[in-house]
Computed example of a mutant assay.
Amino acid sequence: MLTLTGMSGGYGQANVVRGVTAQVAGGEVVALLGRNGTGKTTLLRTIFGLADRQGGEIVFDGHAVPPGRPDLLARWGAALMPENRGVFPSLTVAENVRLATRKGFVPAIDPRDLFPLLAERAGQPAGTLSGGQKQQLGVARAILAGRRMVVIDELTQGLQPSVVTEVLAGLAAVAAAGVAVIVVDQHAGLMLGWCHRAVVMEAGRVVLDAPVGPETRRQLDELLMVR
């Protein structure tokens, strides 16, 4: 579904991501892990054309992705929920949901079943929601728009633990329908319980890319000091 070959990126002359080569298959849930400042968010932004690609190639669903074209990934069915949640503050909850909905696409799980607030606060401007409520709306929008790939940056930010579990189960159902799912979060131990594969970054480079298993968990303990 997604193939990165020698990809580097950053902002202007600042090089943040260096020579990343990785693949994500349809139906796979991948945890992108690493300490703060290791380049995880910049990697996502470079993939989606929101940071400067300084080298390498990106292929998504058989299409070569040119630099600086976030519109193409959206058109081809990839959706990113960024750190700022990607909601339109002046629009209502219902309007945000409607804009994300893709004609003819029915996700494996209805976000309204995950997040009752989508109905309860349908007429409320998104900018007046709490941080956790905006997070729910952002995740819902990504699920609705991501018919081929869903990418969530800082999944658990602002969410109650019970909601996090429901969201992870929902993303697992999305992946089971053949959608590629990438999740970035600081809670590595929690992510490993739901993901098929872990990709760990240090200083802008991938230092571990392996299926989740006992040996991978041991390596992650050493790299991230997971408790």
Rank of each mutant, 00 (worst) to 15 (best):
M1S: 15
G189T: 09
P161A: 08
I182W: 05
L190H: 15
L73Q: 02
D221R: 13
Q186F: 09
I143A: 06
L80I: 08
L2T: 04
Q136H: 03
D185Y: 05
V65W: 06
V93R: 00
G37S: 10
Q54V: 01
A74T: 11
G123L: 00
T42M: 01
V139M: 08
R121V: 02
I182V: 13
A177W: 00
A203G: 04
D209V: 10
E95I: 04
T216S: 10
T5G: 07
L224Q: 11
M7F: 06
T165Q: 09
T3S: 07
G178A: 12
L220M: 08
G34E: 05
A145P: 04
F48W: 03
D52K: 01
E215W: 03
A198F: 02
K134H: 05
L91H: 13
G26T: 11
P111W: 01
M201F: 03
V106E: 14
K134V: 02
T42V: 02
L171E: 14
V106S: 09
R141S: 10
R75M: 05
L155P: 02
A145W: 01
E57G: 10
A142V: 08
D221F: 05
A169F: 03
G34I: 07
G138T: 10
G193K: 05
L33G: 09
R147P: 06
T46M: 01
G146P: 15
R141F: 12
M1L: 12
Q23H: 10
A142M: 06
E83D: 13
T3N: 01
L72F: 07
V200G: 09
G9P: 03
A25T: 06
D221W: 03
G27Y: 02
D185I: 04
Q23S: 14
A64S: 13
Q23N: 10
M225K: 06
V199R: 00
Q13N: 11
G34S: 09
P111R: 10
A25I: 08
E222R: 05
S90A: 10
A145C: 08
R227T: 14
E57P: 00
G39T: 08
G68E: 11
I58A: 08
G39Q: 07
L190T: 15
E120L: 14
L4W: 11
R112E: 15
H196D: 15
G104I: 11
G49I: 07
R147S: 13
L171D: 13
P211T: 14
V163A: 09
Q219A: 11
R227V: 13
T216C: 12
A145M: 04
G104M: 06
M1N: 12
A119G: 13
R227D: 15
H187S: 13
G55A: 12
T156S: 15
M7V: 15
R69P: 10
A14W: 00
A173R: 12
G49H: 01
I152A: 11
L208I: 12
R35P: 00
Q124E: 12
Q157V: 10
H187E: 14
G62M: 10
Q135S: 13
G158S: 09
A74K: 01
T216H: 03
G138C: 07
G170R: 02
A94Q: 14
P66D: 14
T216I: 07
A79D: 04
T38N: 09
D113V: 13
D221L: 07
Q136Y: 04
P214T: 08
G77R: 00
L43E: 08
V17L: 02
F115G: 09
A119Q: 14
V87I: 12
L224H: 10
G37Y: 08
M7H: 02
G138F: 02
